[in-house]
């Protein structure tokens, strides 16, 4: 028994789309690890802080990589929203980093929760629908 596709030419996801999905997935893993490290640290394990810093660096780098991939998606797939969403995450992560360094916990805790929610939402969005490469010859269906 064979399943019939409802679309004549099933849209595959472009390479840039796959890079974006990979970055968003890595960002999801790093984002969810951050509160774990914070909990380990505040439970008295001094090394938890170093892990939390490594995690923060990782989230920052992955966020920038994701912005890069989102630029490629904007060009190749002609979708702009991943770029703006990724940029917003980078801005939030930067504020989060500074709030953490400054010890401003009133900002660091709720912003951290919001960031993880945002990372999860972007993850869901980039995996929810295909991100096919589009050319001028094959405009939006």
């Amino acid at each position: 028994m064979q399943r019939q596709s409802t679309i004549a030419a099933p849209p595959g996801t472009a390479v840039s789309g796959w890079v974006l999905r990979a970055a968003a997935t890595a960002q999801l893993a790093a984002g969810f690890a951050q509160p774990v490290f914070a909990g380990v640290y505040l439970s008295g394990d001094f090394d938890g802080l170093a892990w939390h810093v490594v995690g923060a660096d990782l989230v920052s780098y992955l966020g920038i990589a994701q912005v890069g991939a989102a630029v490629a998606v904007w060009v190749r797939v002609r979708r702009a929203w991943p770029f703006w969403a990724s940029l917003a995450l980078v801005a939030g992560a930067s504020a989060q980093y500074l709030a953490g360094m400054d010890g401003a916990l009133w900002l660091h805790f709720p912003l951290g929760v919001a960031l993880v929610a945002g990372i999860a939402a972007v993850f869901a969005a980039v995996w929810a629908r295909p991100l096919p490469r589009r050319t001028k010859a094959a405009p939006d269906a």
Binding site: W106, P110, V113
Partner: peptide, 19 residues
Amino acid sequence: AIGAAAAGGLALSAAWARR
């Protein structure tokens, strides 16, 4: 909705927490 929840949480924290 997610953005509003995040902004609301931040505003609440900024107003309520001792700074």
